[in-house]
């Protein structure tokens, strides 16, 4: 069955807004997760730490080059995900609309192909 990854993309501004109200955000997110669990659609959910603590391993050269800090530009950074098991892409969209996020953030929805499918280019 189709699975969908809801990829959270925050900007510096939305991340700052989220951190300003982090306690409330944690509480509403917890409630939202509970709702998805009881709907039988949530497979996994994680939030990521500060992108500045990240490390990038770059394979452009013959040997991998390791650099500290976020990947690429600091706008629209991957901040976390929800993996949903829903009946349709439309349903994934409707769940995505309910995710508690700060203004300015975006959610990208990507389909996860089954183990018997070849991913579409």
């Amino acid at each position: 069955m189709p699975k969908y990854l809801l990829i959270m993309r925050g900007t510096d501004e939305s991340n700052a807004a989220m951190m300003a109200g982090i306690d409330e955000m944690i509480a509403t997110t917890r409630q939202f997760i509970d709702e998805m669990v009881k709907a039988g659609v949530l497979l996994a959910a994680e939030g990521l730490d500060d992108p500045r603590q990240g490390v990038v391993v770059d394979f452009s050269a013959e040997t991998p080059v390791v650099t500290d800090g976020p990947y690429g530009e600091t706008k629209e950074l991957f901040g976390g995900f929800f993996m949903l098991d829903v009946a349709s892409k439309q349903e994934a969209v409707e769940w995505a609309k309910r995710v508690p996020v700060a203004r300015g953030a975006k959610i990208e929805i990507r389909r996860v192909p089954g183990s018997d499918e070849v991913p579409q280019a």
Binding site: A39, V86, A87, S88, Q90, E91, V93, E94, W95
Partner: peptide, 8 residues
């Protein structure tokens, strides 16, 4: 999408 909302 009415159907999707209704599912939820």
């Amino acid at each position: 999408d009415v159907e999707a909302v209704w599912r939820i």
